[in-house]
Design a protein around this nucleic acid. Structure first.
Lengths: 217, 217
DNA sequence: GCTCTAATTATGCAAGCGTATAAATACTCC
DNA sequence: GGAGTATTTATACGCTTGCATAATTAGAGC
């Protein structure tokens, strides 16, 4: 109907959570499409179908919104990878394989995610709070990986002391990160599933075990 | 002396190459210190001890300067890695090892380089020209790596057909990139040389050969 | 040493930015 | 259904940005 007043925008009052989520989602859209520089308060507001002033009602400053968006992305990727674990078989080697495959396929291996990630990483160096947030995320990921590695090694009757698993976790984390990077940047020059396969093979070589459930060494 | 006029800045005419280099260097300083957003024409000019207008005399647009700076960084890292090869022993395995070690140590593995790299990568997605520049750099690096791998495999009497070396190059490139990333982001949580060692060990496992000259399999 | 030109400075402009603040309005509660 | 309040809009301010352009000057060549 919007015959309300003359021109003033009609609106609905949404719950605080809903609005925050919408604003974060709109921010991510902006960053994905036009980079961090394209994520202006006005553009974000327009995408969330809201006027710019409202942003400040929910986020004291734009940087707070950006930071929240960063955490949302990292959290989303982490959750997606963990989901893959829940749907995986019980064998630890299958689980590790599922984890790696999930991280090296859609929707995690996506240029948009890289743009977001890179944009934030560039800020890490200047902003200590952001740096801390990032390190936590990184170590959390590596810890989760290290647990998977340990269980896979044990299932293959290989030594799995911390002295081994730590170094393996570092190396395998690098393999996943590196391949993720390559796939995000130039996914089109790789065959479908090639990066995941390459990653699995490399990890098998590093650990000296097979990740295919039957015929494990 | 500078009693020239009243206030006007005194200046010298520099060669075109010198000025371009200075401007690029100033740009890199800005990006490294305060991120891409901190690299404004005025800030860059100030750092190059020049007025802002001059930038446009050498670079049609700011994006051109940014692009040139990106290429300069990538080129610098590439050259530094290649330098390590020239000082390496003749054995292909030693050369590969030297290449990896160089990429996973100072001055290549440096937070500043990561900040620069990440800031630019964030733009790749939005700017096709930058995307092309990046892809060239990436493929160049991987090709160089693939040659080293092939020669190392041959020296160890292993199969070195393109079908093998391509996939190995992808995997090993990922290992190097991933470890480089980890080292740049959180170098302080690793022991000295730990990442390089980890990388060498992982690469040896992937290739199934030893990279230490004596006692090669 | 004068001249001429290319390199450099100085100044200004229009647009877009984040943020502040006051006015308006949708919803809640009695 | 009327009052009150939390949410939302609207407007404006001060800054910074990239870019354009005119005025100046350092240095080369004769």
């Amino acid at each position: 109907m919007k015959t309300q007043s003359a021109t003033r925008k009609t609106f609905r009052r949404e719950g605080e959570d809903k609005r925050r989520e919408d604003l974060i989602a709109a921010t991510l859209e902006c960053v994905a499409e036009r980079g961090l520089a394209g994520a202006t308060v006005r553009e974000i507001a327009q995408r969330a179908d809201v006027t710019a002033g409202l942003i400040r009602y929910y986020f004291p400053t734009k940087d707070d919104l950006i930071g929240a968006a960063y955490r949302a992305v990292m959290n989303r990727m982490t959750v997606q990878a963990s989901d893959a674990l829940h749907n995986a078989a019980a064998d630890p080697r299958s689980r590790l394989q599922a984890f790696v495959t999930a991280n090296l396929g859609e929707p995690i291996m996506d240029p948009h995610n890289l743009s977001l990630w890179a944009g934030f990483i560039a800020l890490v160096h200047a902003d200590p709070a952001m740096a801390a947030a990032h390190r936590d995320g990184y170590l959390g990921f590596r810890d989760e990986l290290e647990i998977l590695i340990r269980e896979a090694l044990i299932a293959s009757k290989k030594p799995a002391e911390p002295i081994h698993t730590r170094r393996h976790a570092i190396a395998i984390n690098a393999i996943i990160d590196g391949l993720w990077l390559e796939g995000c940047l130039a996914g089109d020059i790789f065959a479908d599933g090639e990066l995941a396969e390459t990653g699995i093979a490399a990890i098998e070589a590093v650990l000296g075990i097979s990740l295919h459930t039957q015929g494990a060494e």
